[in-house]
């Protein structure tokens, strides 16, 4: 840089020169961040197309799609697992929201005693180690005949999802100004009509956010699915577990990639729904 700053004190000139080097730490930081996020993903993608890859080699020795054929072969039951996973996740979202909407509204609006305790109660299943909780649920479900059914797995996933659903729904309803509801009452809307026309549309972005969380949680859930669902209900995370346990990284990686499809698809659907001027009203 040959520009001179005549008449400027030396220290200022030095700091001006330094300011040109700002991109160095910034670039390093961003690069590091990109590596942390995309590094493992790149590895995963590499594994899905690797035919042979042994220890001292940095990159796969040969590439190919033979493992894809194995995963999607009629005996590979990946598609069945994908279908089960999506079905369970959708049912979990529907049931969790069906409970969380009235519960969240009540917690946000009514002067309930022990409001804090009720909110904490939803956290309880998370407070204990997953394993003993799910083992005991499996025992109870076995007696009820719920083991190895879709409903059983959905119920287990709900113990997880309800925390997010109820907490986020409570926050979403709290963010709706009570005066907006009173204004509707004042021009003649019944309590139910007010909820339908005013409260629910205004809380919708928050409720959609909780739906995303519940859906993704359900799609990923392993422990509960394993104890309650396996071996009758085959789910993607179980498939992933079996493949990685058997040292078959290709199949595990391909399964993981398949698992990404419904996640991203659901997020795109919800985001599209949120975008239409609703998103700008979050917390309004």
């Amino acid at each position: 840089m040959s520009i001179t700053f005549n008449g400027l004190p030396a220290s200022l000139q030095a700091s001006l020169r330094l300011s040109h080097l700002w991109w160095v730490p910034r670039g390093l930081l961003l690069g590091l961040l990109a590596f942390v996020i995309f590094g493992p993903l790149t590895n995963l993608v590499l594994w899905t197309v690797a035919e042979r890859w042994y220890f001292p080699n940095t990159l796969p020795i040969s590439y190919g799609f033979s493992f894809w054929a194995r995963v999607f072969s009629p005996r590979g039951n990946a598609m069945e697992a994908l279908g089960n996973s999506v079905l369970v996740a959708v049912l979990t979202v529907v049931l969790a929201l069906a409970l969380a909407i009235p519960a969240g509204f009540a917690l946000a609006r009514l002067k309930l005693p022990f409001r804090g305790l009720i909110l904490i109660a939803f956290l309880l299943p998370q407070a204990f180690p997953n394993l003993p909780v799910y083992v005991n649920i499996a025992r109870v479900f076995y007696q009820l005949g719920l083991n190895g059914t879709i409903l059983g797995v959905v119920l287990v996933h709900m113990t997880h999802g309800l925390v997010f659903a109820v907490w986020i729904a409570t926050a979403a309803f709290s963010a709706v100004d009570a005066e907006l509801e009173q204004a509707a009452r004042s021009v003649g809307a019944s309590a139910l009509r007010t909820f339908r026309d005013i409260t629910l549309p205004l809380a919708m972005p928050g409720l959609m956010a909780s739906a995303i969380f519940v859906f993704l949680e359900s799609l990923d859930e392993f422990t509960g699915s394993y104890f309650v669902g396996a071996p009758d209900i085959n789910m993607l995370p179980l498939l992933l577990y079996t493949a990685s346990g058997g040292g078959n990284y290709q199949i595990a990686s391909i399964t993981a990639l398949v698992l990404l499809v419904p996640s991203i698809g659901f997020m795109l659907v919800v985001e599209r729904f949120l975008k239409s001027d609703v998103l700008s009203k979050v917390g309004h």
Binding site: L180, Q182, A183, A184, R185, A189, S190, A191, D277, H284
Partner: peptide, 19 residues
């Protein structure tokens, strides 16, 4: 209840429905 009184209230905050 407020909706059965035949009155209309104008709020200090206006309380217009943003959606």
């Amino acid at each position: 209840p407020p909706d059965k009184r035949g009155m209309a209230l104008v709020f200090q905050s206006y309380a217009l429905w943003p959606h």
